[in-house]
Design a protein around this nucleic acid. Sequence first.
RNA 1: GCCUGGGUGGCGAAAUGGCAGACGCAAGGGACUUAAAAUCCCUUUCCCGAAAGGGAGUGUGGGUUCGACUCCCACCCCAGGCACCA
Length: 887
Amino acid sequence: MAAYPFGEIEKKWQKAWEEGQVFKAPVRPDPATPKFYVLDMFPYPSGAGLHVGHPEGYTATDIVARYKRMKGFNVLHPMGYDSFGLPAQQYAVEHGIHPRITTERNIANIERQIKMFGFSYDWSRRVATTDPDYYRWTQWIFLQMFNAWFDPDARKARPITTLVEKLKREGLSGRALRDAVDAKRLAYMAEVPVNWCPALGTVLANEEVTNEGRSDRGNHPVYRRALKQWMLRITAYAERLVDDLKLCDWPESIKIMQRNWVGRSEGAEVEFRMPNSECRIVVFTTRPDTLFGATYMVLAPEHPLVEKITTADQQAAVRAYVEQAGRKTELERMADAKDKTGVFTGAHAINPVNQQQIPIWVADYVMMGYGTGAIMAVPAHDTRDFEFATKFKLPIVQVVQPPEGVDWRGYVEDGIAVNSGQYDGLTTAEFKKRITAELEAARLGKYAVNYKLRDWIFSRQWYWGEPFPIVHCDACGTVGLPDDQLPLRLPDLDDFTPEASDDPEAPPKPPLGRVKDWITVACPSCGKLAQRELNAMPQWAGSCWYYLRYLDPKNAARFCDPEIERYWMGPNGVDLYVGGAEHAVLHLLYARFWHKVLHDLGHVSTAEPFGKLFNQGMIRSFAYRDKRGICIPYDKVDSSGDKPTHVDTGEELQVSIEKMSKSLKNVVNPDDVIAEYGADTFRLYEMFMGPLEASKPWNTRDVPGVHRFLNRVWRMVAGDEEHASLVAEGAEDAETERALHKMVKKVGDDIEAMKFNTAISAMMEFVNVVYKAGSIAPSQAARFLLALAPFAPHLAEELWQKTGHAKMLAHEPWPEVRAEFLEEDTVEVPVQVNGKLRGRIRVPVAAAKEAVLAAARAEPSVAPHLAGKTVRKEIYVPGKMVNLVAG
RNA sequence: GCCUGGGUGGCGAAAUGGCAGACGCAAGGGACUUAAAAUCCCUUUCCCGAAAGGGAGUGUGGGUUCGACUCCCACCCCAGGCACCA
């Protein structure tokens, strides 16, 4: 395909933009100029480099950034790297290469790739989470949390000193005071059950554990085990994380996912007493109205009361069960969900509403981590209790009357109370309200809210993460480093392997523990020898606040200057944040949490970090399989016929659309596409494929289509050996001018609405109009180039220069749209008879209804359909449609 | 099981109460060329028909409306998320 010289042009303008610092945002912006902060989710610099999914979001934000600059905004459009993490750590373990080296290498490669696309990033603001100048402030924010507590009265975080004062006033001092304070910090240590993999020597996240209860990497056994870990008190923010979603202009589906993740539910805590025992079992229930139907109770295997209440003759069975349950990972417990197991403790509890004695069981379908770790079981109206009761032959008592024709067994919706004494006849809602109030009055229960959300396990036993700025001192306890000792740098190391062990009970030995001259340090508080914290932070840490560092990346005195923060973040935070939906919950929830802590402590001005969020869809691609199910690479597929066939054997192949992956041999490499067609074509293709939010398949066959369009633009403006340019002085044509205004308006509106695919088709239509007309005036060509520039910036700049403009177009104003060019004198109106299209009439825009209807009835293609019928109803939607209802 | 999206030509898609298939790909035809590539022009939802024209048509079945791809009800299929959360 003969093509415009994209390779040369793209290099030329990328160099010009970089050397001219064309996209550098002002360091001290003028508050009078409106701002726009458009942000991409920064990538993890993996060894595989960019895939075609990355530039999809980056192109979209680049279009918006370039457009907003032309509209007169100060645009902040930065890029950086989320460079701590497990892959570099594992690579280091396997190849003995320092993760810093591989990380630097990978960043260099991915940055080279990103720069090929000509994105208008302000590279002077680049950050990497592994830079000591960056993680210094990650550590500083951690210390902010360590030195803060959540004041339930103020519903916000406050400095820990306010708690110390308060507790002192209450008479605490010494060790007791310290323990009480430590237990309330936003960053605290606690013994929690974790997925412990002794062979890897680290704790694993749930998603790193397979269904078989083994490690995703290496297939080593994983055990459930209680270990002392750093925790962040995100649960204190559960309510605000849900409530403040109303401030976020986000896709509703993402908000729903976040709400579900936090999982707020309202109900009551109810206390069950036991005969002949002081023990009391507190349960959480969302259905206090079903108390009369509670026929047994269940404790989680880890529940502290299990041991105390189990009777002698059940001791052995309960112990065996608890021990076996403890060995299962959370995932195994879920896998066994269908088949309920459990053991009777021999003990009974008293149902507070009817004084009945009901048996207490232990079963692993009750989780220690949710509610109180104990439930009242109402088998008639809870699916799980129903299954359990059926299996173990426990009584099932109806207490809710479902609507006519619905079986009450297993009915879990609302209904009318029955078999509930004085409460019979109440609706579920009324009953809940009354019983909760009465339990509260009798001191047997209270209104309660529970969340699925758990506190965030924040430590990892690996090397390649931010070190905790913490020392452990025998005399002073856990002490944060003073600011002047930050950053606490990662010490160098030759062997990154966490100490592996076959013994699941052996204590963790993080790799940092081997750096003998690093681990001991003078306690910042008392000066005696103390031990550094040996764990490192998880990968999420650095990405929780990077959008703030971009604002003021070189500031050595603060994480960000407050005045600069107010300018770029006000009033609603980041104006546009684009990334994949895979971060819908964790990254976005964690970042919101950190932001709220910083907000409470007065360090940032907004309640929410990301005002508007947009999720790009996943780009997948075709995968071809032969009869045996073996994947065939693209260069072995012949798709010239009706059905794809194998180039060598001619065998017909099965096509499917899948995620790109090496094993499916369907990965498209951006480098190859750019080499063949150029970056502008790549950008345009990804934006033209379909709506940004939709998941769609990459189809290499379609790429030449947009490339052809760019060639047409080139020839239209510059011509080539065989074709003269269509630009001609004095070619101002009214039709072209009208088409141009219409196009500019549509492109502008579509960019604002993130509908890039239809913006591109509008530009294609305009070029088709010009080719039909045969010429275009210079001023029209110039305005067309301005509209094209956000999408295909290299080509636009080159043609802009070729048409005699000395200054770059990057900061030219967006072309003006004038209403008089959008209006037409006459309009074509379709005419329907009984809702069926029969003809079209052309009428003046302002024509009266009667005149239009008369013209419609008279239209030759319409009249025959009315012959012999009475027109019963006439509808005219001005400028849109006529419908004649006849019978 | 629950919660989100989505299902429109041979393919990617457009239209979100008012002309279904814009724009692009692929395919077919034509022009240019010794030829090919590139380029330009035309055709292209399906069925009946030589044509004019007619009929059907947006996953399936109902409904609301003068009018439904669009709104409502039920169902089927695909993708993503959650999943013993009491």
